Simulated assay, not measured.
Amino acid sequence: MARDVERDTTERVLTLLGLLQQRQIWTGPELADRLGVTPRTVRRDVDRLRTLGYQVHAAQGVGGGYQLGPGPDLPPLLFDDEEAIATAVSLLVGAGGGAGAAALRALTKLDRVLPTRLRHEVRALSGSVESFGGGRASVDSETLTTLARTCRDEVEVGFDYPSGDQLRRRRVEPHRLVASERRWYLLAFDLDRDDWRSFRVDRMTEVSARTWRFRPRVAPDAATYVQEGVASRVYSRQARFLVHASAETVRSRFSASAAVVRPRGAELCEILSGADNLDAVLMRVLLLGHEFEVLDPPELGRRCRALAEALLKAGERSQ
């Protein structure tokens, strides 16, 4: 009997903590009504929380009530199911960006304490996400969860996606979610086009798992494929350069979505980038301030010579 009373008290105190974390301020009668106890019991439970280190402030009069305040240390937090999944998504974004190892450690701790019914959701996200660049996109967590689950379970997914001025229903075999510094993408095998394709998650609507399972295909590296698409294939023209500088140095001058930079040695790297007008890419490489060579396309090399002659003439006239 004593154990039952203790268990009921513990559950009630945890429920009280959850309520205080949900809203700025609660009156005593409101908390008593939500917990099904008397205001006196609420006061005792508040004292129990204070004993555990929670800073619970109480104010009398109109507008008064109980308020959970900041303490000297971070206390345990209580999440409902949706908040736990949303937190996992945010941590995944952070793990792909500047937060790095700290976000990954936090995600691991969250996974350890999640109830069984939610743990597979977080692991679905963790196992189905890759990134390049900063990974700071923000999209609907339910959509991400659905896509991550279909990647994990090898189940086809359907969604509406813009095609010109219309929305088309797409059927794909999902492979990986990829986070760039601005957006989320899904790398999937497009069953209508019979080829691999990346889709922007923020453009997807009416996302739903289908009932058809599929056998995984040999897939390209997800992060590399999506980055090359964002930086190059999406444009009508592509160019490659060999730059006499380290890949690390060049990456610090280009965003991950603007160019793919591959090391070719300690002081050499290759740049792959695209644009509708390659003069823009050429000028960006020129302004790096390092020697470079045009690898593709050949006409861009001729364009370099023409621009060099024009600049030389301009310099001669200004003397």
Rank of each mutant, 00 (worst) to 15 (best):
R123S: 04
D111F: 06
V89C: 09
R303V: 03
R170V: 09
D80S: 08
S257M: 10
R3D: 11
V42N: 05
A103D: 06
R215S: 15
T87A: 14
G28I: 10
R12W: 00
A280H: 12
L35T: 01
G265A: 09
F214I: 00
L278C: 07
R303L: 08
L107R: 09
D202A: 00
K313V: 13
V201C: 04
R176I: 06
G229R: 09
R112N: 10
D190V: 03
L300W: 00
A256W: 01
A179E: 06
L110C: 06
D80P: 01
G53R: 02
G65C: 05
G127W: 02
L312E: 13
Q55D: 15
Q60C: 02
L268I: 05
G135P: 04
L307H: 09
I25G: 01
A222F: 05
V250K: 00
V129F: 05
V281Q: 04
R203H: 10
L288C: 05
D47V: 14
L118Y: 01
D81K: 09
T38G: 11
T15Y: 00
L147F: 01
E299H: 12
P263Q: 02
L78H: 01
P220I: 08
V155C: 13
G28M: 08
G63E: 04
L268C: 12
R303M: 06
A231W: 00
A88F: 01
E248T: 15
L35P: 04
P72C: 07
G61I: 01
E228P: 06
T38W: 07
R253A: 15
E30Q: 15
F159C: 03
E228Y: 08
E309L: 14
T41F: 01
R152S: 12
L125E: 02
A256I: 03
V178H: 03
G164Y: 11
E142F: 08
Y161M: 04
P220R: 01
V250P: 06
Q238T: 15
R193M: 10
E6Q: 13
P39L: 06
E173D: 11
R240H: 14
W184D: 00
E267R: 14
R171I: 09
R217I: 05
L278E: 00
T211E: 13
E156D: 11
D81C: 05
T146H: 02
G28A: 14
V93S: 14
A310I: 02
E316N: 11
R171P: 00
P76W: 12
S208M: 08
E6L: 10
V226G: 02
S141R: 07
R193H: 09
L68D: 07
L287T: 13
R183S: 03
I85H: 00
D140P: 04
L287W: 12
L14F: 07
L278R: 03
P39I: 07
A266L: 14
V178G: 05
A2M: 11
G18L: 05
A179F: 01
L118T: 02
T211Q: 11
D73F: 14
A137Q: 08
L186A: 01
D4R: 13
Q319H: 13
N277F: 10
D73Y: 10
D4K: 14
T51Y: 04
V93L: 03
L19S: 05
A32C: 09
T41A: 15
S255Q: 13
A88P: 01
V207P: 00
V281T: 13
W196Q: 03
E6F: 04
